[in-house]
Design a binder for these strands. Structure first.
Lengths: 345, 345
DNA sequence: GTGAAAGCGCTAACAG
DNA sequence: CTGTTAGCGCTTTCAC
């Protein structure tokens, strides 16, 4: 009959090794010198007994469970999944665990999560994207709980963040299009109340036009509420409105790849060839952009790196390292595939 | 000057409320009756001091942190992301936290994670998909550590699991195709060493043929290694081989939507119309199947429900509830969109 | 070089 | 109905 296996504790190790528990602890943590033979003996017993220190007990003492919380609007969104991948990978490398919570774009859920986890369980928080509501995050930060924000603009340099420069990225996209002779550039975006990232892209678009002395024409710019709920339907609607102009654009620039996918689809339905008749450009570089027909030209966000950079920053803060720059901006890149046509003069 | 905020503990609450700490504990946990006024007073102080019990300390005593570990091959894979969504949602409803670890299809990573988390930190484990290696999982289960397995077939009824019936699902797919007059059904799949789910689909395909007295023709069945690494490239290769037959199939059935997407793409490149010339059917119902052209007809796996059912089961086990059925099979469903043509006799 | 013992914050058994 | 206290497993001072 198998003996009921009580988990082995440091006490068992100490007893079997014939030393005190403090010696075991010190040997295991190298927190003070332990005679070589003693240490070896201890290690032997540890492996014999298959002992693992109880993280909880240690945590109670050290006030750290080497765990960070990641709060994300929706794990099933690819963008977030990619960011989290970066988070998980580098957290693990640095020997931290990742606790995952989804807020479903609900700020009160975020607050609830914070309450549950605060100061007790996790060593820090990572907030990824979602809507721009910052009071709770700021107050965490003010309370000295380590926190970093990804893909949101806190508008307060004191809260650590990892972002891309959405403004510059979209501006560059316009310049890129201008460079290959596009002169009439449509734009489709979600509404952006509370989502500065989306707003900044739009501003970047405007600035890009100015850079090249193109006039801004509201008839070929659609900022759609419908898109929020249904990218396919919303983009269909937006495209039709844009086409309902005497002077249609040569290219439609979009605030996201999902929108761009919908745009391509609609154009196809209308028997308009991409990119021969109209070019289409996305933003994000999601997986699907490798599966559209034609392959989508887009602006790449370094999703995994964003996650990796964010935890790195967070762990540095947690461990009290000096961080020189706690507002990190990551570079974007134009991925030129097939959905943009180079025009001639 | 702000006073350095030491976290408030149960002691502070007790002192301020003028009662003992056990009364506070009992009032908060309803673990024994506390006089109404006393309780109210305590609750008041709690909210005054903004007190939250320290989960770690509680965990040390109760041996539970209300946290489960989810071990998944790759969070950026949509299938897994969806499953995790279900996990996270229902875990939260039941007041549990979710700890996320990715194994990147590496069994030794799984083992490492187990070591780190075992018996101390988390109350149970959820293993999602990946390759079929079970020794470590079985031994967890034998050690009475709550564990459930999702989308893997442990081959041992003792380990709790949540699955779909891959065999029946693919068999039904064949029968569905037969029902609309398809008589020559090609099949493209990954190799399936160690992945019984994929193997079972293949077996289901074979059985479906038998059900309808269709002969199995290896010339139109491609089990490809290349597909593992690159679905687009692999499916291109596979399609070409299949087309390199005098007698080409009327429909290509695929072991996954990703493959199907590649197949559609290749067919299009070859100027073969889907579904007019050849029909295509997928398996999984990933998001992208809503974005292909034509929309992909596929077999839906209830991903979110799988996750939800799995944690439910796990938490029941953790909480010592009687579970009647610990090997759950979830239903699949054929989603008939546009990539299949109904044939006439 | 090592051991004894305090104590992290909480729960629960025991005592009244 | 409530208080006192032991102790969960560990780290860390203090003592030798």
């Amino acid at each position: 009959m198998k003996k009921k296996s009580k988990v082995t504790s440091i006490k068992d190790v100490a007893k079997k090794a014939g030393v005190s528990i403090s010696t075991v602890s010190n040997a295991l943590n190298d927190s003070r010198y332990v005679k070589k033979e003693t240490k070896e003996k201890i290690l032997e017993v540890v492996s014999d007994l298959n002992y693992t220190p109880n993280i909880i007990a240690r945590g109670l003492k050290t006030r750290s469970t080497r765990t960070v919380a990641v709060i994300v609007p929706d794990i099933s969104n690819q963008f977030f999944a990619q960011v989290i991948k970066g988070v998980e990978e580098t957290a693990r490398q640095r020997n931290y665990n990742v606790l995952l919570t989804c807020s479903y774009y609900d700020v009160s859920e975020e607050k609830r999560s914070i309450e549950i986890l605060k100061q007790q369980f996790v060593s820090g928080f990572l907030f990824i994207s979602g809507y721009n509501s910052f009071e709770h995050i700021k107050s965490l930060n003010d309370d000295k709980v380590p926190v970093v924000v990804v893909d949101r603009e806190p508008g307060d340099k004191k809260v650590p963040s990892v972002l891309i420069d959405n403004f510059e990225a979209m501006r560059k996209a316009v310049n890129f299009l201008y460079g290959i002779r596009h002169r009439r550039i449509g734009y489709i975006s979600y509404t952006y109340d509370n989502q500065t990232t989306v707003e900044r892209r739009y501003k970047g678009y405007r600035r890009g036009l100015e850079d090249n002395n193109l006039v801004y024409d509201p008839d070929i710019v659609m900022i759609s509420e419908t898109l929020r709920l249904n990218e396919l339907e919303g983009s269909r609607e937006a495209v039709k409105k844009i086409l309902n102009n005497k002077n249609i654009p040569t290219v439609i620039l979009n605030a996201s790849d999902f929108i761009a996918v919908g745009v391509i689809r609609t154009l196809k339905e209308l028997n308009i060839k991409v990119p021969e008749d109209i070019s289409v450009m996305g933003f994000d570089n999601i997986l699907m952009s490798l599966y559209t027909d034609p392959l989508l030209t887009t602006v790449k966000q370094p999703k995994k790196q964003m996650g990796a950079a964010a935890v790195s920053l967070l762990l540095d803060i947690i461990e009290g390292k000096r961080v020189k720059n706690k507002n990190i901006i990551l570079p974007t890149e134009i991925i030129d595939r097939q959905s943009i046509k180079k025009l001639q003069d």
